[in-house]
Write a protein that binds this DNA or RNA. Structure first.
Lengths: 206, 206
DNA sequence: TTTCAATTAGTACAAGTGTTCTAAATTATT
DNA sequence: AATAATTTAGAACACTTGTACTAATTGAAA
């Protein structure tokens, strides 16, 4: 099964660098050093490749979510969680760069993604709840504000990569850090004084 | 010049509904009731159509920005500004739905867009400055937080439409309102007590 | 070793796309 | 009314893409 692995590797690279429209069955096969007929034997078309890679992403996210269940949900854990997720999304960034088109075309991904997002919203609610209980985050003082906050954070989480593609020429770690800071910084105003002190401590040490 | 107008109308509709990849020179020409040869006489290809429509959007945004200079920058003006911008973006939503691909392909749009974004960042800074001076918005109490806030608001402003496409089946006014509320709600925690009172007054009356 | 299934390369085809070109038709100008 | 410029339709071309198919090769099981 080494061929299949190599195909997915090359596909991921080409999707990320060229976009899902420029990377074709032929270009991927060529770089993988096989015939495109062979590639189509393993994956019927590029959509099948996209779906396979999407499944890999969700697998990796799931694994990480399970690992995170055993932390005590301090502020540092929340930040760490965001950090890992950002890196994961960056690894599969072609998905986010092209998500609308992919979703419009591949219905199975659409459905999987919707359930994933509901899960993420719940995770946020739970995390906030924990932080409030620990006295790190303020109680909601404007009705509905945490719902709005979560909406904004989810949009940031899904769209910082397209945003980076549009605004920056740099790539990689530098970009990830920039948006990660914006993400965490967006949380800061909702923290208690204790929370802010902790926030300072964490961002200065990294 | 009626043909040109009709072409752009149909193109906008097809781009919004089908996406820039499904709408072709031929499909647009057909709906406009002309030959595709004729369409190519007026606009060399779909990229030229996209560019023309992008220019229209920036024109409309500019007009509105000028109109807004004569307001006194109360909270209600800031909200009104956001509302109009959201509606404008929705009118040309295909641009935001496909922005990465468009930017990658059409360099002139890339450059125009970057300067536009710098402008928008400045507008936010100015608006915040005004609100602070009026005692409606708090002074920055965590270093850099307003820069992060603006980053987040800009990302929300550019990506609520793709987000809606992914998460909702509804379209139109309902969607606009949902994200507009998230946008304004994201501002609320940064307001002073007076600001929050004003915020309540404004959101309950609409 | 033989046999059968899985894998691979290469070819061929159909559909769709942007692009160009020519000739006709329309409109405006003198 | 005559002439020139603009606009339009339609055909033709080159290119790419996904898809299917065939034949050859490989590898494992009997």
């Amino acid at each position: 099964m080494k061929t299949k692995e190599r195909i997915l590797e090359v596909a991921l690279r080409q999707f990320n660098e060229l976009g899902t429209d420029q990377a074709t069955v032929r270009s991927i096969a060529e770089e993988a050093g096989i015939s495109h007929g062979n590639l189509c034997y393993h994956f019927k078309n590029t959509d099948a490749l996209i779906e396979a890679l999407y499944d890999r992403l969700t697998e990796e996210i799931d694994e990480q979510a399970i690992r995170m269940q055993h932390t005590d949900n301090e502020l540092k854990d929340v930040i760490r969680q965001a950090e890992i997720t950002f890196h994961l999304l960056y690894k599969y960034r072609f998905l986010l760069l092209d998500f609308v088109r992919i979703i419009r075309r591949i219905d199975s991904i659409r459905q999987k993604f919707r359930t994933l997002m509901q899960l993420r919203r719940q995770q946020f609610h739970r995390a906030f709840h924990n932080l409030i209980a620990k006295g790190l985050m303020r109680e909601e003082w404007i009705p509905g504000q945490y719902n709005h906050l979560i909406t904004n954070l989810l949009i940031l989480g899904d769209n910082w990569i397209p945003n980076a593609e549009i605004h920056f020429d740099e790539k990689g770690e530098k970009v990830i850090k920039y948006y990660l800071e914006a993400f965490i910084g967006g949380l800061a105003p909702y923290l208690t004084e204790t929370g802010v002190r902790e926030y300072y401590r964490l961002i200065t040490e990294s």
